[in-house]
Amino acid sequence: MGTSLLIAAAVFVLAVGTAVNGCPPSDRAALMAFKAALHEPYLGIFKSWTGNDCCNKWYGVSCDPITKRVADINLRGESEDPIFQKAHRTGYMNGSISPAICKLDRLSSVIIADWKGISGIIPPCISSLPFLRILDLIGNQISGQIPYNIGKLSRLTVLNIADNKITGRMPRNAIEGNIPDVFGPSSYFMMMDLSYNNLKGAIPKSIASASYIGHLDLSHNHLCGAIPAGSWFDHLEAASFVNNDCLCGKPLKSC
């Protein structure tokens, strides 16, 4: 092989190596658009979002080690991270969740929790993220309805929207009105938190037939009637059911 050909091959290998060592420009652009819709004045967590490689020490961002695609966004307003300790306070962030987040189509978890000032709606396109397992938006001022097609996220195991201003209905559950009696052996929940809403009526008996329920919180609603009996309810404490109109049965008082 001639010298020029060797050099060309080396340059090609170097270029390929560089490409897989950093996140794609499209992922970086999506994160920057996501950042532009938010304002965090105290902690400076976005100061680390510099450079071309969003997989390299960008606060709250994690990437798949092989594909270098952004896999996780983990931004919490309450944390033991040194950046919070240095500021001597919990976080405060305002703004909204940009639809640009949906361009990160390899996202596995989105945690934007306990910031108190994030408002706006859940972008409807969030239901187009096929690998999403965790969506945790607790403790904000998010309003509007849960995207209708969120029920199509077959990998979603954690949906936490408590302590927001969500209204309307969602597939699988009713934020207002009765909880549909539609659960069965194919229902699987690592966490189902519907606390602080306006749910009414009884807890459907079919929920006890779910294949797995890790955590359930129906507190602070207007539910009434007997709590279904089932193995998935044995580990739940009274806190999961308190502050309803007239729920009864284990772990509350007997009916």
Score class of each variant (00 low, 15 high):
15 A>C: 13
228 P>L: 04
166 I>N: 03
163 D>L: 14
188 Y>P: 02
224 C>L: 06
218 L>C: 03
113 A>K: 13
9 A>Q: 12
194 L>R: 01
153 L>P: 06
140 N>S: 11
3 T>E: 13
229 A>L: 13
151 G>W: 04
210 A>M: 05
224 C>S: 06
54 C>A: 13
20 V>I: 15
232 W>I: 03
59 Y>I: 14
45 I>V: 15
59 Y>W: 12
33 A>W: 05
46 F>I: 06
214 G>Q: 08
55 C>Y: 02
172 R>E: 11
241 F>K: 10
236 L>I: 04
89 R>C: 00
63 C>W: 09
231 S>K: 07
160 N>M: 13
180 P>V: 09
150 I>M: 13
5 L>I: 13
95 G>Q: 03
90 T>Q: 06
170 M>I: 06
246 C>L: 04
192 M>G: 02
117 G>K: 02
11 V>C: 10
53 D>L: 00
148 Y>E: 11
254 S>F: 09
249 G>E: 13
159 L>D: 10
116 K>P: 01
26 S>R: 15
195 S>I: 12
30 A>N: 01
113 A>I: 02
143 S>Y: 00
123 P>T: 09
17 G>P: 00
87 A>Q: 05
162 A>S: 14
32 M>A: 00
13 V>L: 15
123 P>W: 02
250 K>L: 10
101 I>K: 05
238 A>V: 10
247 L>G: 09
213 I>D: 09
4 S>H: 12
225 G>V: 04
14 L>A: 15
107 L>K: 12
94 N>H: 03
94 N>P: 01
1 M>S: 11
159 L>W: 02
85 Q>F: 14
31 L>G: 08
65 P>F: 05
51 G>I: 09
63 C>D: 12
255 C>F: 01
201 G>A: 01
169 R>K: 15
112 I>A: 03
104 L>G: 05
19 A>S: 06
175 I>H: 04
241 F>E: 00
68 K>F: 11
161 I>T: 04
67 T>H: 14
169 R>V: 06
181 D>G: 00
62 S>D: 12
44 G>Y: 08
219 S>D: 00
249 G>N: 09
54 C>L: 10
3 T>P: 09
5 L>D: 10
200 K>N: 10
137 L>M: 07
176 E>P: 00
27 D>Q: 07
184 G>Q: 01
67 T>A: 07
219 S>N: 01
183 F>S: 01
225 G>Y: 11
137 L>P: 03
66 I>M: 10
205 K>Y: 08
184 G>C: 01
136 D>Y: 13
247 L>P: 03
233 F>T: 05
244 N>F: 10
55 C>N: 07
14 L>I: 14
254 S>A: 08
18 T>Y: 11
95 G>S: 04
28 R>Y: 03
191 M>L: 15
160 N>W: 10
190 M>I: 14
30 A>V: 09
220 H>K: 07
252 L>A: 06
106 R>P: 06
154 S>M: 11
166 I>Q: 07
198 N>E: 09
